[in-house]
Design a protein around this nucleic acid. Sequence first.
DNA 1: ACAAAATAGTACTATAATAGTCCACTTTAA
DNA 2: TTAAAGTGGACTATTATAGTACTATTTTGT
Lengths: 153, 153
Amino acid sequence: MIKMGKLTDYGTLMMTYLAREPKRLHSAQDIAQAIGINVPTATKVLKMLTRSGLLESHRGIKGGYLLARTPQDITMADIIGALEGPIGLTDCGTPSQPGNCHRERSCSVKANWQRISQAVNDALASVSLAEMTVPVAQPIVMQRPTHIEQVRL
Amino acid sequence: MIKMGKLTDYGTLMMTYLAREPKRLHSAQDIAQAIGINVPTATKVLKMLTRSGLLESHRGIKGGYLLARTPQDITMADIIGALEGPIGLTDCGTPSQPGNCHRERSCSVKANWQRISQAVNDALASVSLAEMTVPVAQPIVMQRPTHIEQVRL
DNA sequence: ACAAAATAGTACTATAATAGTCCACTTTAA
DNA sequence: TTAAAGTGGACTATTATAGTACTATTTTGT
């Protein structure tokens, strides 16, 4: 199974929770309780989301967190990217991002992996946080990634 | 980064290697050397691929492995599925497969995760091993997964 | 000013998943 | 019947992840 870490799972739950009242500040305690995890773990995730610019934080005694953008303007690619780093199935990178595979030159399948990663990326980018908040959301429309030449096999 | 294990990476390289001469038997040693890993690790992966029905094995002194189907009839979803188990970003499962999340009932985003996983699945199933063997392969056409109701947000 | 309550940063520890290795067994061709 | 190949399963080492703790900083209210 290609899977995400637990923290990403928590993060998604947090983001959908915050999306329900996008204007109100929620404390880490609040959020931790809402999704049923311990406060230290919750704060860890919240810090990551904040540093990535998906959340705004306010310090001080009445502080807390809220979405930095509207739920429509935040995608699953944003959230996963914030918590797991660049999205890619391999270390091949994507056409845009470099990648750090030492096999590099000799690798015959790199270009194809990059295309696959890009496709997954596009899929995740096509799902907004707003969609995640509704019980049954919109169909996921995945574009075939980038201009890859058609090849007859 | 959502990433696959190294073994899956090896597996893909092995499969593309075997796809170049689909009729010839290749020994584990052969294959290990071709992709540049140690024999014990290679055999581990080969065993997994064989048990999943993607490879045929022949024992005995002139034994070895070959593809069980044509490169056109093997997809990346097959290979990844064989080496990583069912494809899914979370433990939510897919509309078809059950999933084993204890949050289950209360989870507000499960259905959406299932759709996303299904989309990734479809993407991987749309790429054949044959395509992986050409330097720059066909565009990946991802269907929007399954009949998810359109919702106005 | 000061105390209380909240986030920020960072480092550490524990746990779990993965990768890699090894060995005894089975099969087959010469 | 022996050598070379795959099979199955268990074991070990390594690495990645999750979880925790501690100190510093910010803000509000009195």
